[in-house]
C-alpha cells in the first residue's frame, strides 16, 4: 500500500509518517508543490494526502492535474483552509475526501482504509479481523458466521476501531466520528460510553468481548488476543 504525503510542515509530516508506517503503509513525502508535481507524474500511489497551501503553488492545482489524468479519486485533502468553497471545489475536482486540520490520526486511518477499500475492490469487500468479518458493502458484521447485530453508530465505531487495530483510539475521535460536527457542542462523552458499552456487550455475547479494551481515561483499543 503506497501513500504520498504532500505536506510542508515537517513536524506534522513526522507524525503522519510515524503513524502510517506503523500501520504498514509505504509512505513518501513531498514538501513543495514542485516535488509533489514531479512525484505524482512519475509514480502511482494508492492514496495521496494533499495539503492545499504549499510552497510554490496551490494544492488545488495539483488536484486539477490529477483530475486531467483521471487519478483524483485517490486524494484526501488535509487542509487548514476550511473555506467552504475550497471544500466544494476540492470535491468537485474529484478528491475522495476532505479532512480539515487539525484532524485525528485514527480518523485519518479510517478514511484511508475506506478509500483504499473503495479503489482496490471496486467497493465490494470484507474486512477481516480474526473471527470477526465485516461486509462493508452490506454494512453487516459476523463473528465466526454468527451475525453481529449493530446500530449505525456501533457499526461506525467498530469500523473505526478496526482501522486502528492495536492502537488507542481517543474518546474525542470516537465522538467526532460518530456525531460529526455536532460533537464539538457537547463536552460530555456520555454517548461514546454508551456506544462502547453496547458494542462490548454484543461482542461479548459472541465471545470476543475481550478484544475491546479501555485504556485508562484516554480511549479504547481493539486488540485480538494473539492466539
Amino acid at each position: 500500500m503506497k501513500l504520498l504525503i504532500v505536506e510542508d510542515e515537517p513536524e506534522l509530516t513526522a507524525s503522519l509518517l510515524s503513524h502510517l508506517q506503523d500501520q504498514q503503509y509505504v509512505c513518501e513525502v513531498a514538501t513543495t508543490f514542485a516535488e509533489a508535481e514531479e512525484k505524482l507524474l512519475l509514480f502511482e500511489y494508492d492514496c495521496v494526502l494533499l495539503d492545499l497551501t504549499l510552497p510554490g503553488g496551490d494544492g488545488l492545482e495539483l488536484l486539477r492535474q490529477l483530475q486531467a489524468r483521471q487519478q483524483a479519486d485517490g486524494v484526501i485533502i488535509t487542509s487548514s483552509r476550511d473555506a467552504l468553497d475550497d471544500r466544494i471545489t476540492g470535491l468537485r475536482l474529484g478528491a475522495d475526501d476532505y479532512l480539515p486540520k487539525p484532524f485525528h490520526l485514527s480518523e485519518l486511518s479510517a478514511r484511508i482504509a475506506a478509500l483504499v477499500r473503495r479503489r482496490r475492490f471496486n467497493g465490494s469487500n470484507l474486512v477481516q479481523a480474526g473471527p470477526l468479518t465485516v461486509d462493508v458493502l452490506a454494512r453487516q458484521a459476523t463473528v465466526r458466521g454468527q451475525p453481529l447485530l449493530l446500530t449505525r453508530s456501533e457499526y461506525d465505531l467498530l469500523l473505526l476501531l478496526l482501522a486502528n487495530q492495536n492502537r488507542v483510539v481517543m474518546k474525542s475521535t470516537i465522538a467526532e466520528h460518530i456525531s460529526g460536527d455536532m460533537a464539538e457542542h457537547f463536552n460530555s462523552y456520555e454517548p461514546v460510553y454508551t456506544h462502547v458499552k453496547n458494542l462490548k456487550r454484543k461482542l461479548s455475547e459472541l465471545g470476543i468481548g475481550d478484544s475491546l479494551r479501555t485504556v485508562y481515561g484516554l480511549g479504547y483499543r481493539f486488540e485480538l488476543p494473539s492466539a
Partner: peptide, 20 residues
C-alpha cells in the same frame, strides 16, 4: 486559519502518538 490550525494539528498528532 492556516497559521493557527497547523501548529494545532502538530500538537494534536504528537499527543496521539504519545498516547500510543
Amino acid at each position: 486559519a492556516h497559521e493557527m490550525q497547523t501548529p494545532l494539528a502538530v500538537q494534536h498528532t504528537k499527543l496521539e502518538l504519545l498516547a500510543q
